[in-house]
Nucleic acid binder design. Structure first.
Lengths: 230, 230
DNA sequence: CACCATAATATGTTTATACATAATAAAAAT
DNA sequence: ATTTTTATTATGTATAAACATATTATGGTG
């Protein structure tokens, strides 16, 4: 007879999902629930905290706990390291660094990285292959103010993402997903079918208030998709 | 001086992200951490639970707590109710039900909904417009075994998604995101530019082990993107 | 040496209690 | 009547203590 809080949590969850406690309504307070379930307030609190973390209820001091009105649904996709994604599919992974240079980033990148001055950043373009076929084009900018040690790394052997993941902490990551008409680099390297578009993942990562890196990952749209974990 | 567990949690998080506790290593046990931070084991446990729920550490009884090896990063995108998404952008929302019929679903849909028999499902095709321009084509199948009351609803006024969200609970949702060459319905209704692809969100929802609905939401790829919450 | 029972240990759960904090409601002052 | 102050209340955090449970380590047996 362990895990009482889980039982309580799923009982309360059922009352929410089956409409017994409609969206927007206030549910009984912790003390009353504790009495109903014959446990202490701490146990009720823990059950409610779980529901709160999942975004099903909102709790405010003195005001009580209410079922949230939620239209939207959250979908969490895991964006794997490219090597892992390719190898998990059973294919052979390979990697080529196409260009590596210190450049003044174009305005769009400067904005994304919130670079104020005219300093240079490290620009990398690399191609990730799956069984020898182009799988992903990586166009990356690394903020050398935040990550000066990247200037010394030769990214011919180790991919920039793998290196960053292992060496540089980050506190926040922002992603944008979209499909685009292929740009020049994608046309050159991704071996696209006629008129094929690319599926683009853009990511910017931050360490506190300092930007770390901005990357654009382009994939042939015909052979790429993202799925939530089941 | 409240929220000690949050301070501890972020201190521990820093030790993980800055490599003080490398990926795969075992971190000190709760009792030792309690001593270091001058608090009780319960407070340490709560801090660790937070990190565990975020997937940064893995805890096993007797074996201790270890930093997980994680290459990938999770990106959570909120897929709003279409009406809300359009209205939030400041545009006027409108909706047209194109077709509504009870049909035997094609094999791909039968598989997605895990329908074993040859029963019919409710098929809806609808168009969502933003300031009068096509924004999203919705192609939906509703499992009438799970949601028989949907058969009585006239979806001319209320969108199927809004109706389902408010009436039918669900326990699980699976999403797939990809870009596609437009199909016949998308070509007919979405007013695409020449050669333009569509950005597709597919969603299947479940109530326990029973499938509820499967929907395909197609958008003109040139004017659509998904972003993680900032 | 291999195998099985037993002890030790780190995390997991629950109770009981106390005080902190935020939001509201009620009372007092202007 | 309106504003300000004060009290009330529901949630939030923390301590201390006990027992449960899963996993590993150990020690004895064949």
């Amino acid at each position: 007879m362990e895990q009482k809080y889980k039982d309580i949590r799923s009982t309360l969850l059922r009352r929410i999902t089956d409409g017994h406690w409609p969206q927007g309504s206030i549910i009984p307070n912790e003390a009353d629930l504790a009495e109903e379930f014959a446990c202490t307030r701490a146990t009720i609190s823990r059950a409610l905290r779980g529901l709160s973390e999942r975004g099903l209820i909102e709790r405010k001091k003195k005001a009580g706990t209410r079922v949230v009105q939620r239209g939207g649904r959250d979908a969490t996709v895991t964006i794997d390291i490219t090597r892992d994604a390719v190898e998990r599919s059973g294919a052979h992974y390979s990697y080529t660094l196409l260009t590596r240079a210190k450049l003044k980033p174009p305005p769009a990148i400067r904005a994304a990285l919130e670079l104020l001055n005219q300093k240079t950043s490290l620009n990398l373009v690399a191609l990730h292959l799956s069984d020898g076929r182009p799988h992903q084009l990586e166009e990356r900018w690394i903020n050398l103010e935040t990550v000066p040690e990247a200037a010394k790394v030769d990214f011919n052997e180790v991919g920039a993402n793998e290196w960053l993941v292992n060496k540089i902490p980050f506190t926040e990551a922002r992603h944008v997903l979209r499909a685009e008409r292929p740009g020049e680099a994608a046309l050159n390297w991704l071996d696209l079918k006629p008129d094929e578009w690319v599926f683009v993942i853009e990511r910017t990562t931050w360490l506190s208030d300092a930007s770390v890196t901005h990357v654009r990952l382009s994939h042939p749209a015909d052979s790429f998709q993202l799925a939530t974990r089941t």
